[in-house]
Structures are given as structure tokens and as C-alpha cells.
């Protein structure tokens, strides 16, 4: 079984982003960019499944600018076999990403696609579900465990009240939650080896897919700031404030 893992280049999770003063977007100039943390988990899962003999090949794919090669190289260093970069500058909405991934999954004959459950920049939490719909495949979102059972996979999902186990028929789309695994750090020799692994570039047009956004971003605003609070000196003072000033207890 071939596993396809889509990985997104996003602003690093340690960066505190700023809204541009003209409201046109978020200032990412010179910000450190990294692989979306959930996608590291997805790559790790696929590589472990290959190591366990459950998968034959791990292919990673990213839709983004030329610099997205860096996150693909990181995925290759973690153990993926080859990479595909679909070059697209500017905004690419999840629906367009899902349409691109649909073509790639079909062309590759993937048996499973493992995505992150959400990207930490747009926080959409959509792409995997959309991809499953377009492919007509089963979906298992927010996975914290994947066990292979022949033509099926038993997936434990994180849901609001706890966990849920479902059985999906392959091929299937799975999205990774935080507790699925702890991703490895790529070792220096593996980083060197990754430089020689194949990475091909395509454009959405090569796949016959123009990508026109459906949403117009009118503006991006600063969130409403909280009024600054006070430090209190004792538990008695705190409880008094909560009772009389804030009236919450």
C-alpha cells in the first residue's frame, strides 16, 4: 500500500504573528516557516507504517511556493521516499488544495492519505474531509491510533466527550490528531540522504486545475485586546474581588 502525506509550510508555531496595520493580512516577512506540526505527526505515522511492513512507499506532497521544498526535504529526512511540489503562490483555499490532492492521490494510486487535522495558520480543519468527499473514500478524522486489519483500518478518534473507534474500508483518508505519535527528529545522515531523494515539481495547470479562491478576504483585524488586570496579594483578596468586583462566584 502506498501512503500519500500532504504537508503544508506554515509559520512556525513559536512565532508571534502581527496583523499588518493596513488590515490587508498578516505580516509574515522574515518569519520562520516550518512544517505544520500536525503534518509532522502524519509523516511519522506513515513512516512507522512502512517500517512495520504495512506500507510499501511514502510519498509526500505540498501545495505552495518554491520554498515549500524545505518542508518536503524535512519529510524526506524523516523517512518519506519521494516528494511532489505543486507550485502555487498566494492563497490556495482548502477546496482547491483538496482538488489538487485528489488528482495526486488518483495518479499515485494511494491506498491511504494521512493529513494533519488542521493547519495552524488558517485553522480551517477541512482539507482531509474535503479530499475524502472528492475521492468518494471513507474518512477517519482526529485519529489518535491507526491499526491495520487487511482491507480495513481500525481508527481511534478524539471526539468531544472522549474517544471513538471506527472501522474504515481502504482506501481511506485519515487526519492526525496530537496524540497519534511523537514525531522523530531527522538525524544528520538522514538529512544528507534526503537531499538525493526525488522531488518533482508540477503546477495546478499541469493537473488541469485552475485555482480561483471562492472567499474574498475583506480585511484582517487585530483581536480585541483584554483590559490589563491586577495582581492580588492573598487568597482572601482574590476571593473578595471575585465575589464583589467580578460577581462570578
Amino acid at each position: 500500500m502506498k501512503i500519500l502525506v500532504p504537508v503544508k509550510r506554515v509559520v512556525d508555531h513559536n512565532v508571534k504573528i502581527r496583523v499588518k496595520t493596513d488590515g490587508s493580512g498578516v505580516d509574515l516577512a522574515n518569519a520562520k516557516m516550518s512544517m505544520n506540526p500536525f503534518d509532522e505527526i502524519a509523516v511519522e505515522q506513515a513512516v512507522r507504517m512502512k517500517e512495520a511492513g504495512e506500507a510499501t512507499e511514502v510519498v509526500v506532497v505540498s501545495v505552495g511556493p518554491a520554498q515549500a521544498q524545505e518542508v518536503l526535504r524535512t519529510a524526506l529526512a524523516m523517512g518519506a521516499d519521494r516528494a511532489i511540489l505543486i507550485l502555487a503562490d498566494g492563497r490556495v483555499e482548502p477546496l482547491s488544495v483538496a482538488k489538487i490532492l485528489q488528482r495526486v492521490a488518483q495518479a499515485e494510486g494511494a491506498g491511504m492519505v494521512i493529513l494533519g487535522k488542521q493547519a495552524i495558520d488558517d485553522d480551517c480543519n477541512q482539507t482531509g474531509q474535503m479530499l475524502a468527499a472528492l475521492l468518494g473514500w471513507s474518512q477517519a478524522t482526529f485519529a489518535s491510533k491507526i491499526e491495520m486489519e487487511g482491507a480495513h483500518a481500525l481508527v481511534t478518534r478524539e471526539i468531544d466527550g472522549g474517544l471513538q473507534q471506527i472501522r474504515v474500508t481502504l482506501p481511506a483518508v485519515v487526519t492526525a490528531d496530537l496524540r497519534l505519535n511523537e514525531p522523530r527528529y531527522a538525524s544528520l545522515p538522514n538529512i544528507m540522504k534526503a537531499k538525493k531523494k526525488p522531488l518533482v515539481q508540477q503546477t495546478p495547470e499541469d493537473l488541469g486545475l485552475p485555482i480561483a479562491p471562492r472567499l474574498t478576504v475583506l480585511r484582517v483585524e487585530e483581536p480585541v485586546a483584554r483590559a490589563s488586570g491586577i495582581k492580588v496579594g492573598s487568597v482572601a483578596e482574590l476571593l473578595d474581588k471575585l465575589k464583589t468586583e467580578a460577581a462570578v462566584i
Binding site: V11, K16, V26, D123, L218, E221, E222
Partner: peptide, 16 residues
């Protein structure tokens, strides 16, 4: 309106 970047920015989006 919807939050992006962990709520550090608020996007105002219009659907077409």
C-alpha cells in the same frame, strides 16, 4: 469573522 493564527488575527471573509 473568524479567527486565524490561533486567534492572533481575525479574518473578515465574504463568500462568493
Amino acid at each position: 469573522k473568524r479567527p486565524i493564527y490561533a486567534g492572533n488575527a481575525i479574518e473578515v471573509v465574504q463568500s462568493t
